[in-house]
Design a protein around this nucleic acid. Structure first.
Lengths: 153, 153
DNA sequence: TGGATATATATGGGATAGCATGGGATAAAA
DNA sequence: TTTTATCCCATGCTATCCCATATATATCCA
């Protein structure tokens, strides 16, 4: 399966359209519908982007909570209920709603940030700060990648 | 998996292309996509090169974290977002972006330095210095390779 | 063994296809 | 009708392909 990697900055035109970076489209291309799922990030002034199939995974993770528990309900409301499927146009662009633009504070440009199974969309200035914080955080907290679950050799 | 070994110097042409040394390509060849992952070294004026499978591995390990946790986000931002996948052309070359060239201070030539599971790319002059420093450092600090069981000294 | 011919690598340049971007036209919705 | 959302076309840029050459190592044959 392809991964979302690297960071790319694209422009928003006056119609609210942005090109999804070509490599990202290639990852999304292996999907049931020609588009992407966006939601407001619950932890950042940014958007989270997923391949449509990933929603299945999110739903599965929610199964870890007791049914009708308030926590599960909160999480489902914060994720699945907020998920917006956006179709690509013929050129591989999506149209951002005013609500999404407001939450992420987009101006003229959007930074598409590849994070493996998902990606984020930031205003370039905000991403610059976030990037530094993340790097510092990894160092000071001494974050390390956990051992593999069931990978290969 | 094969190892990246030895040091090779290749030229950058006016289009920003460099041949990845043949032996390195052989190591990278057994990969899901025909190319290499580069990122700016966080500790040197150099680039770090990885096999694409490395990123798969990192992504898998990150799956162990809760989704939307800040630790997962920090780690992904510091690794996957910084990783740039570069495809080989038909001749086994990659194209270096201006950003990468600037970070590593490349001029006309690049030294590909094999370091086992990864390699580095240096401007030849900078590598010469770095090499001496590393050798001196090993002597004065009395550095030795840890035992094979993974135990610290 | 020597010489000639392959095979692979490194390098250069021209041509082409794909991507990001912008704007107008058309179709659906309010 | 007015608005909104697609589609379609046009453009510049850059990535990538394809072809060509030089050098070096490997292979073959007389």
């Amino acid at each position: 399966m392809g991964l979302f990697l690297s960071t790319t900055i694209n422009r928003i035109d006056r119609k609210g359209r942005v090109s999804v970076p070509g490599p990202f489209r290639a990852v999304l291309g292996e999907q049931p519908f020609a588009g992407v799922i966006l939601m407001k990030s619950p932890i950042h002034a940014a958007l989270e982007g997923f391949a449509p199939l990933m929603m299945e995974d999110i739903a599965s993770r929610l199964d870890a909570y007791p049914m009708f528990s308030m926590d599960q309900d909160d999480l489902a409301a914060a994720t699945l209920a907020e998920a917006m499927p956006l179709h690509f146009d013929t050129e591989g662009r999506i149209v951002l709603s005013a609500e999404l633009v407001a939450h992420a504070g987009f101006d003229e440009e959007v930074a598409f940030v590849g994070l493996g199974r998902k990606f984020q969309m930031w205003s370039p200035a905000a991403w610059k700060k976030r990037r530094e914080v993340a790097q510092k955080s990894v160092k000071t907290k001494g974050l390390v990648l956990p051992a593999r679950n069931g990978g290969e050799a």
